[in-house]
Write a protein that binds this DNA or RNA. Structure first.
Lengths: 147, 147
DNA sequence: CCACAATAATTTGATATCAATATAATAGGT
DNA sequence: ACCTATTATATTGATATCAAATTATTGTGG
């Protein structure tokens, strides 16, 4: 191996072990699969659960703030609302005060599904925290510092 | 608000603040965007960088172990290899010793792109760790416990 | 009032993701 | 050698993700 190759080999090993982007993607995939499985009986995915959860507010929210809270692109949120609208869990309405804006509203059916899903979340998340050990608050703080 | 509604409202607020799945997805999205931006000049995304990085081995690896390491579905890996093959960065070859299996090989061009991307990663990741503060090793350990 | 900038959301095109299913090849038992 | 179970990957269909470009609406300076 040339010098250039050994340098690259060492660098890639270091990155495999230290890259926070890689570590975050892996954890995100593993957790998504886990909660997707747990929520499947209720017909929603982990991402849809998070979105329904955020939309459970007294006053309807617009898309901008929701996208920001979820750290996702506005256009991704537009796409993510489609299946939820089709399932009748969420209603998207033009804001009469500013017709560029949309009001995102959880329907009665949406609240019903959310209520059932919350029960699943509670047991699954408790099991998760037990499994991973360590200090979950510290982990949350670290993740919050990134997002 | 009925009792059932106040209970749900409290639960959703708790989940917004504590759900590790949500926190992980947010961090993953934010980091992916950040490294996508940094790597764009070299024509690869953050996920493609992680994959190229993993494939930089002396002996070619098969798909199964790579998918496992990345905590992703095998079929996702199949899909992710397509654009890299098209760009000539990776070569996928049938393993003569077991023709069900594939050998994943980084091409010379792939190594070249990887080498340039590694330089970007070093500066970007150093900046990231500085920004988020805290103990990055502890954060990595937490993420590893999940994946 | 009007032209133009700024804001909110959508559309489009490419990649990413997974579950379910299918295809292909090896391994093991008889 | 044959039949079957197992293993390795690929395909399909639905959703997720982002950047870039587009549409629609509001705000603002003149």
């Amino acid at each position: 191996m040339t010098r250039k190759e050994t340098d690259l080999a060492e660098a890639t090993i270091h990155i495999r072990d230290h890259c926070l982007c890689l570590h975050a993607q892996r954890a995100a995939r593993a957790l998504a699969r886990r909660f997707d499985d747990a929520l499947r009986p209720h017909g929603i995915t982990s991402g849809q659960f998070s979105l329904l959860n955020v939309l459970n507010r007294r006053e309807p929210v617009a898309m901008g703030p929701v996208a920001k809270f979820l750290a996702m692109d506005r256009s991704t949120l537009t796409a993510n609302l489609k299946p939820l609208e089709r399932q009748g869990l969420v209603s998207v309405e033009v804001d009469p005060d500013d017709r560029r804006s949309r009001k995102l509203i959880l329907t009665a059916e949406g609240r019903k599904v959310l209520r059932a899903a919350v029960a699943v979340w509670k047991s699954e998340h408790a099991a998760l925290e037990k499994e991973i050990g360590g200090d979950p608050d510290a982990l949350r703080a670290g993740l919050r510092a990134i997002a």
